[in-house]
């Protein structure tokens, strides 16, 4: 059965939409990631206009982050104070991001910027994760491997406006999470992602947060950032298709359940290695599309 998506203005088979949601949901359950970085390129690939894909995915991530954060809250794995600072930064960043998005769209360069952001950030994160998980796998086979320090101190810890974050056992400058939140917010708005795949490593390596609270806190702030993107895109570009978001969500919720069960069968470093390969796969595919000669150098878009 085909369904006409009222905002995207394309008709798509309902099985494809729910299948996409289910497939990406399965992977996000398996790896414990949001899956926006997979879903947005897939939606574009299936003919959803890029602007609609990015805004609609933000709407869907609101839902998946809410359901994710509830589990972490029950276990007390959310640092609300840190989350609030990250959120303030995220609100500023994502508002700038939506404005930037509108501007780039008006000059016809939004597709390029989306693609380049994906290549750059997925490339960096994928390579980092791959080398890290390979190192862990190799290390675990060598007896007597020693653990490193909890976190290193560097110039970032010398910034002013220091604040105490009890849950994260940190005493650092508030400017640091504010800046990270803002930077990830810009990317979230432009790439149609929650930004967890950048936020989580940034929290661990730049802020030095304990890994137990990282995912919950990241999810907590993603809710607000993606809700902000949803609202601003609704007002400025009218590109949020909640019919599409709802159907994707339905598939994703079910898929994630199976994914998290399958994830329990694999070891952490193996999972991270697989995720790294998948991230790099998406990165290479998008990079390839940028380099290969298009079938037609000219393209059209209707403006009304």
């Amino acid at each position: 059965m085909y369904i006409y998506l009222p905002i995207a203005e394309v008709s798509m088979h309902i099985g494809i939409i729910i299948g996409l949601g289910g497939g990406v949901g399965f992977l996000s359950g398996l790896f414990g990631v949001g899956g926006g970085f997979l879903m947005t390129p897939l939606l574009i690939f299936f003919g959803i206009p890029p602007a609609v894909a990015v805004s609609t995915e933000a709407n869907q991530i609101v839902a998946s982050s809410v359901s994710g954060v509830l589990a972490h809250m029950r276990r007390g794995n959310v640092d609300f104070k840190m989350g609030a600072i990250l959120m303030v930064g995220g609100m500023i960043g994502s508002s700038l991001g939506v404005a930037l998005f509108s501007f780039l769209r008006s000059i016809g360069q939004i597709d390029l910027v989306i693609q380049l952001s994906y290549v750059v950030f997925l490339g960096i994160i994928g390579m980092l994760m791959l080398t890290e998980s390979l190192r862990t796998i190799i290390k675990s086979r060598q007896p007597g491997a020693k653990r490193g320090k909890l976190h290193q101190h560097n110039w970032l810890h010398g910034l002013p406006f220091k604040m105490r974050f009890r849950r994260s056992k940190l005493y650092i400058s508030a400017l640091l999470p504010l800046g990270i939140g803002a930077f990830v917010g810009v990317l979230a708005a432009i790439m149609g992602v929650g930004g967890g795949f950048i936020m989580v490593p940034a929290m661990i390596y730049l802020l030095g947060m304990p890994t137990s609270v990282v995912v919950g806190t990241s999810l907590f702030q993603i809710i607000f950032v993606t809700a902000n993107v949803t609202l601003l895109q609704s007002i400025q570009t009218q590109t949020v298709d909640f019919v599409l978001a709802g159907l994707l969500l339905f598939g994703a919720v079910v898929g994630a359940q199976f994914g998290s069960r399958a994830g329990a069968l694999l070891r952490g470093e193996q999972l991270r290695g697989l995720l790294a390969l998948m991230v790099l796969g998406v990165c290479i595919k998008i990079a390839f599309d940028l380099v290969v000669t298009p079938e037609d150098l000219l393209s059209v878009e209707l403006v009304r």
């Binding site: 709407n59 869907q60 609101v62 839902a63 998946s64 982050s65 809410v66 359901s67 994710g68 509830l70 589990a71 809710i223 809700a227 949803t230 609202l231 601003l232 895109q233 609704s234 007002i235 009218q238 949020v240 909640f242 978001a245 709802g246 969500l249 919720v253």
Partner: peptide
């Protein structure tokens, strides 16, 4: 504006329901 707020409310409600 209301559409955006509605889309957010819808997402929060369905996320909570799923959890």
């Amino acid at each position: 504006v209301f559409y955006g707020l509605f889309a957010i409310a819808f997402a929060v409600a369905s996320g909570w329901l799923a959890a």
